[in-house]
Design a protein around this nucleic acid. Structure first.
Lengths: 419, 419
DNA sequence: ACAGTTTCCCGTAAATGC
DNA sequence: TGCATTTACGGGAAACTG
């Protein structure tokens, strides 16, 4: 009969951080015959304390408020709350050992009650929020949001606060839809088939089908083999990177993002030298890199990926400007920007032109100085470079790339062996 | 008889931010005959509310606590408090108009009381802190600290909470000592005569003496002519820059810092090309720049200052590395780093060598990429450059500097005209 | 409308608890 | 001791308030 709404973190409802205000709204969906009746709603946190809860919280703000007419045409009654939660420091003897759940898997709820008497009848109204996750620091947000997504994707019983003691599995068909939705919820663009395919391989291995199941632990708890973070922590770091630093570039669909290194190479192999694509780092949290292809005199391709840019660098330099200004220097000569065509064949400035920041062209007494992204490559001593300074745009020395490829082959972590 | 101590912000005692804990300690300096007596100390904020106070605060934590034996050898009694303050939202009618003082000029106090009876005598003990400034955001810290310094430098009456309704003036002799102390309190190095002289000229004009007086308003309230900030706000931004980004460089005395542009040029004029010095920006808050001298073929010096580096860039790149890696590029040729000798004649690497960050030398599959500070200079079309690429370290083209000097002359804000 | 001031709350670092 | 979780609070930005 009553319908509660919750609003906390803008895009992350159902997660509540202690000490941070959140709003709730309760609406009475039936029209009472007496609309001037002072109908009081009382809010209770964890009214029916579920078993296995270690932490207890209470509402530090007003818990009781009278309903009011929300909309004069309908005469609907509603009430808005502005709450905040605090942990009850219980010196309880029960330790965390009984539940192997982490705090972000602990589900809570908010109950709303109202009592009134009409025509001699005592009426009790009660409603309850969807399960909530309570965190104490934003660093717990990724885990909390993972729980909210997983619960609402897979739970079909009502108010199943013990869901994570035995969490259901998601089929890839279900999960991939949610993942794409996470991107479209944070931007204007979801994930396409190819991107989802790469993510599916990451979770399920080379050959998988839509009906394959993903375990909650594989999604959130267990680290990706060889990496110090789980699948969702990795993916969420990318969502945050997009939100904070790459929104226009992502919205324009200029970031291929999720592409395996095998695929990356096979895509770039046949393209013109200087063709590049943007890809999220699989080894660093919240990193983006570009890979470009360069063909040597014999037409053999080599692939180069720049060290991923993370938020600390993107705070200092605008990402499209990085692409515009990227320089390779060898032997004191600044080579032409090796990034020429965004895959498949869009001239760089045509794609990114409208995203560049204006250069500070104001006349000022200082020599303008910026931080530019650059890479220094040393040519191998066997083939000393002869930079053609007279040429306005000297090509990269093949020697530099030979050397580079040798280096690249030393580490198999994030790069394919060079054949 | 009792001696209170206050501890708030590490280096900024007597400033209290609402909602942030601070500690106090009260020590009984006389030894009472009964040392097991439960002597309770009560804390009150603004016990004797001074007139003209618009804001009222109260202590949200424990205000009363029993003294304890601090030191068993002396048997001294003392008590430690951990307090926090909150504003009393008084719906008082008195507005802020009666006092033209800003909140950081409003002085408050903390009182400590204890009562006991001994041998039939009622004894009241009471003591009180030095005047306090209460702020609600760290952005008010510079103003608050200015008040604390000025009060403690110049007030000689006891507990003069109305001090800022008619603040005394400081002689330059007094003030310069305090300013130097601010630097030595934040680092290992105070200010020398030359640096203080530049600051004195900024406040008092070209010719001044130690007995000249500085007005409080000139020190803190009024903006420096032509600038959107006052003297202290400017100086404090530099203290913060040093604390957060330049501590080792400052401690080594490598930052001349406070030097007028006239002086800068006269110092560099006679020095070898590539001699540079480090100076704080006078036009940007919390900025540092380097100026180097370059002599052309006729022996005429030109001076170049790079756009000041502020915290956002220093967050991304370590300052000594900026000096090591600074590059000037013209016509696709990277010139030798123009910074060679730290004034007067210390080879750059000898001075900064031990301050450089290690370059990430780890082998990884990515092309290492860093942000480098660089300036691009275009040579004038009249004298096309002929970069000598065969020379391992090509000198800067004179043409580039001619062009640059023309540009420099356009703006008189922060640079001298070129003669 | 606006400037001075406070509130809000993220994000890093430190402290705490198990 | 190490890891999980909470607390602390600086700092940027929004909200408030005369």
């Amino acid at each position: 009969e009553k319908q509660p709404c919750m609003s906390t973190h803008p895009q992350k409802p159902l997660v509540i951080k202690t000490g941070v205000q959140f709003s709730t709204k309760v609406r009475l969906l039936v029209k009472l015959p007496v609309d001037d009746y002072r109908l009081k709603v009382k809010t209770t946190f964890d009214k029916d304390l579920p078993p296995g809860r270690v932490r207890q919280f209470f509402i530090v703000t007003t818990t009781t408020k009278a309903m009011d007419i929300e909309d004069f045409t309908s005469g609907c009654l509603s009430v808005d709350f502005r709450h905040a939660l605090k942990e009850k420091k219980s010196n309880s003897t029960k330790t965390h050992n009984e539940s192997l759940l982490s705090v972000t898997e602990e589900l809570h709820s908010l109950s709303f009650e109202a009592h009134f008497t009409i025509l001699g009848l005592d009426i009790d109204l009660e409603t309850c929020s969807l399960p909530l996750v309570v965190i104490s620091n934003v660093s717990q947000m990724p885990g909390a949001w993972a729980s909210v997504m997983w619960y609402n994707l897979l739970n079909d019983e009502p108010k199943n606060l013990a869901f994570f003691s035995n969490p259901a599995r998601a089929t890839w068909a279900q999960l991939s839809e949610v993942l794409s939705w996470q991107f479209s919820a944070n931007s204007n663009l979801g994930l396409n088939k190819d991107q989802l395919n790469m993510l599916g391989e990451k979770l399920l291995g080379q050959h998988f089908s839509n009906s394959d199941q993903v375990y909650w632990s594989k999604f959130w708890k267990e680290n990706i083999p060889g990496k110090p973070f789980s699948f969702w922590i990795w993916l969420d770091s990318i969502l945050e990177l997009i939100r904070k630093h790459l929104l226009p570039v992502w919205n324009e669909n200029y970031i291929m993002g999720f592409v395996s290194k095998e695929m990356e190479r096979s895509l770039l192999r046949g393209k013109e030298s200087g063709t590049f694509l943007l890809r999220f780092s699989e080894s660093h949290l919240g990193g983006i890199t570009f890979t470009w292809v360069q063909h040597n005199d014999y037409g053999e391709p080599s692939f180069n990926s720049v060290e991923p840019y993370t938020k600390s660098r993107l705070n200092a330099v605008h990402f499209p400007d990085m692409i515009r200004d990227y320089k390779v220097i060898s032997d004191r000569v600044v080579h032409e920007n090796p990034l020429k065509f965004l895959y498949p064949d869009i001239p760089k400035d045509e794609a990114f032109g409208q995203l560049y920041n204006k250069l500070p062209s104001k006349v000022n007494p200082y020599i303008p100085s910026t931080l530019i992204p650059w890479s220094e490559m040393r040519s191998s001593s066997a083939s000393p470079p002869s930079p053609t300074c007279d040429s306005p745009e000297p090509p990269m020395t093949p020697g530099a790339f030979d050397m580079l490829n040798k280096t690249l082959c030393c580490d198999m972590d994030d790069v394919l062996p060079c054949y």
